[in-house]
C-alpha cells in the first residue's frame, strides 16, 4: 500500500520533471501561432536543455559557492514543491510535509537564493534583477496570502490534498469567494512565474529584464538547471491552480488505472491552461515596473474581495 503510494509519488515527480519542458514548448508554439509566426517543434525546449547540459561551464572569476550552489537549490526545491501538489492522486505520502503556506515558503527560498546569486558576481544587471525581483515578490506575497486565506476559509484547511478533497465533495461549488480567489491566483501566477505583463520570459533587453537579469551570468549545466526549474515552476503553478480550484480528475483511490487516467486529465488541463496563458500574454503588453503596484494591487483587491464576500455572502 505504502509502496504503491511512494511509486505514485515518484511518478508524479517524474511527470513534473519530464513534462515541464513539453508544457513550455506548447506555450511557445501557441504563442507563435497567435502572432502569425511559424513555431519551433514542441520538443525544442528539450533540445535546448540537452545543448546546455553538454556545454562547459564558464564562471566569473569572483563567483563564490553561492553562485554554484544556487542552481541545485532552485532545482531541488522546485522538485520538493512538486512532490506536495496533488497532480495524480490526493493520497501523496509526502503531501503532509508541507501545506500551501510552506509551499509559498519553498518558492521563497528558491527566490532568495536566486537573488543572492544575481548579486554574487557584482555586475549592475544582476543587482538590478535581484532588487526588482524582491520588490515584485514583496508586492505579490500579501495577495498570495490573502488568496490562500480565502481558499482556506471555504475549505477549512491549508493542506492541498484536503482542499482538493473538499472541492471534490462539491460543498464549495459556485462560491463567489472562490471565483475572486481564482482571479487573484491568475494574476499572482503571472507575477510569480515571470510572464507578461510582469516580466517577459523571452527578453534580453537590459531595462525590461527581471528574472533574466539575475541569471544572466549562468552558463552550461547551471543555466540548464535554472531554466528547467523555471519551466517546472510554471508547470507547478498551473497544477496548483488545478488542485485548488478544479481538482476534478485527480485520483482519489490508489488504483493504477485511475492514476493513469489522472495523468491524462492533468495533461489535458495543462494544455487548456496553456491556451489561457497565451491568450492573456498576447492580449497584454509588458507593464512598466512601477505600474506593477497597480497590477499586484488588483490581485490583492481580488483576493480581499473574495475574503469579504465569503463573510458577507456565504
Amino acid at each position: 500500500m505504502m509502496l504503491g503510494r511512494l511509486v505514485t509519488e515518484l511518478l508524479q515527480v517524474a511527470l513534473l520533471v519530464g513534462a515541464a519542458p513539453l508544457f513550455v514548448g506548447w506555450v511557445r508554439m501557441l504563442k507563435c501561432w497567435t502572432q502569425g509566426r511559424t513555431s519551433a517543434s514542441l520538443l525544442q525546449p528539450y533540445r535546448d536543455l540537452a545543448k546546455l547540459f553538454s556545454k562547459d561551464v564558464v564562471l566569473a572569476e569572483n563567483a563564490s559557492w553561492i553562485f554554484r550552489f544556487t542552481p541545485y537549490l532552485v532545482f531541488g526545491t522546485t522538485i520538493i514543491a512538486g512532490a506536495v501538489v496533488p497532480m495524480l492522486t490526493i493520497n501523496l505520502p509526502l503531501a503532509p510535509i508541507a501545506d500551501v503556506i510552506v509551499l509559498v515558503g519553498l518558492f521563497a527560498i528558491a527566490r532568495f537564493f536566486t537573488a543572492l546569486a544575481g548579486m554574487d558576481i557584482g555586475t549592475a544587471f544582476g543587482g538590478m534583477g535581484s532588487s526588482r525581483e524582491m520588490m515584485v515578490a514583496s508586492l505579490a506575497e500579501p495577495a498570495m496570502l490573502m488568496a490562500i486565506f480565502t481558499v482556506s476559509l471555504a475549505n477549512k484547511s491549508t493542506s492541498l490534498s484536503h482542499i482538493a478533497e473538499v472541492m471534490y465533495s462539491g460543498q464549495s461549488l459556485l462560491k463567489p469567494s472562490l471565483a475572486f480567489a481564482f482571479i487573484a491566483f491568475i494574476l499572482i501566477t503571472l507575477a510569480e512565474t515571470g510572464r507578461i505583463p510582469v516580466d517577459n520570459p523571452s527578453t534580453h533587453l537590459e531595462l525590461t529584464m527581471l528574472h533574466e537579469a539575475m541569471v544572466l551570468e549562468y552558463s552550461g549545466r547551471h543555466l540548464a538547471l535554472i531554466e528547467w526549474a523555471g519551466m517546472m515552476k510554471l508547470f507547478l503553478f498551473m497544477a496548483l491552480g488545478s488542485a485548488l480550484f478544479f481538482p476534478w480528475g485527480i485520483a482519489i483511490s490508489d488504483g493504477p488505472l485511475e492514476i493513469a487516467g489522472a495523468g491524462i486529465i492533468i495533461l489535458a488541463k495543462l494544455a487548456a491552461s496553456g491556451i489561457v496563458l497565451v491568450v492573456i500574454e498576447t492580449g497584454l503588453a509588458k507593464m512598466r515596473l512601477f505600474r506593477l503596484t497597480e497590477f499586484l494591487g488588483s490581485a490583492f483587491l481580488m483576493a480581499t474581495l473574495g475574503m469579504l464576500s465569503f463573510f458577507i455572502l456565504e
Binding site: M134, F300, T304
Partner: peptide
C-alpha cells in the same frame, strides 16, 4: 485577514532586506 496580509508583506520585505544585507 488584513492583518495577516500585512504580516505576509512583512515576511516578504524581510526577505528583501536580508538579500540586500547579505548580498
Amino acid at each position: 485577514p488584513l492583518a495577516a496580509a500585512l504580516l505576509a508583506l512583512t515576511a516578504a520585505l524581510a526577505a528583501a532586506t536580508f538579500v540586500k544585507a547579505f548580498g
